[in-house]
């Protein structure tokens, strides 16, 4: 079989892009994405990164506050990188509880002059504020903390996100210890579960970079996967842990492939 000529491969790439644009049903056809800049994750995400005009759900893997904090920081890192894509990008963060601590977000790279907080009374208001922010189109991203969201409201958010070409990040918080918030039906493009795992040993008596098990429970147009990553640096980037013995089997397969 003769090798594809350069012009043919270009045409093929163009056709593929067109098909992807039709699939996404986006208004302008161009579907941006935000790479994690970690090959192990980006290779397994459809589109090579986190799709920007889309809804993404994140939750802690267990009901405790520790995993919840890890999930919050995971979102904060994504939001920080979203806000740095464009100079002066602003993140709208809709809260329903008052336990978020802004200095902690700042350490994940989300600077205080990049965030506008909206304090809401209940989940419905959080969803409405998110939708309003997404439709505006001038924000770099919208984050909302909810307990439950109906299928219909997540679909609305997904449509609003495509309309405004703005990333929607939804932090689903545990309401009951036996009710996994990610199990309810949702129109989100990706759903992530974050859990704390013990961090690496340091040569001195101290705590180092946090380590999370990142589980992509579902994604549209791709396979789920499971990775152990090191938490945010000062600019919201994740990293692969250095020692091979802490790698998950999935990670090993990715290396082999």
């Amino acid at each position: 079989m003769p090798a594809l000529s350069p012009s043919r491969s270009e045409r093929l790439a163009a056709l593929r892009a067109e098909v992807r644009a039709i699939e996404s049903a986006g208004a302008d056809g161009a579907r941006d994405c935000l790479p994690f800049e970690v090959g192990a994750i980006d290779r397994r995400l459809a589109g090579g990164g986190l799709a920007i005009p889309a809804l993404h759900e994140v939750a802690g893997a267990r009901a405790g506050l520790g995993d919840d904090a890890a999930a919050t920081l995971f979102i904060a890192g994504i939001a920080a990188r979203l806000s740095m894509v464009e100079a002066g990008g602003t993140i709208l963060w809709a809260l329903s509880r008052r336990d978020l601590f802004a200095p902690g977000l700042a350490q994940a790279g989300l600077r205080p002059d990049r965030v506008i907080y909206a304090e809401c009374r209940n989940d419905e208001e959080v969803l409405a504020v998110m939708e309003e922010g997404l439709r505006h189109g001038g924000l770099a991203g919208v984050v909302g903390e909810v307990g439950r969201a109906q299928m219909a409201s997540t679909r609305r958010l997904q449509l609003a996100s495509e309309e405004g070409a703005t990333a929607a990040l939804m932090l689903k918080r545990w309401r009951k210890a036996d009710e996994d918030p990610l199990l309810s039906p949702s129109a989100a493009v990706t759903r992530w579960r974050i859990a704390c795992v013990p961090s690496g040993e340091l040569p001195v008596q101290s705590v180092g970079r946090p380590r999370w098990r990142i589980e992509l429970a579902r994604q549209r147009g791709g396979e789920p996967f499971n990775l152990v990553m090191e938490g945010n640096d000062a600019e919201g980037r994740l990293a692969l842990p250095a020692e091979p013995r802490h790698r998950s089997p999935a990670d090993g397969r990715a290396r082999a492939a």
């Binding site: 919840d68 920081l73 904060a76 978020l100 601590f101 902690g104 350490q107």
Partner: peptide
């Protein structure tokens, strides 16, 4: 200085 992201008050 290290600061938490969830704060109990």
């Amino acid at each position: 200085w290290p600061r938490p992201v969830r704060f109990l008050s």
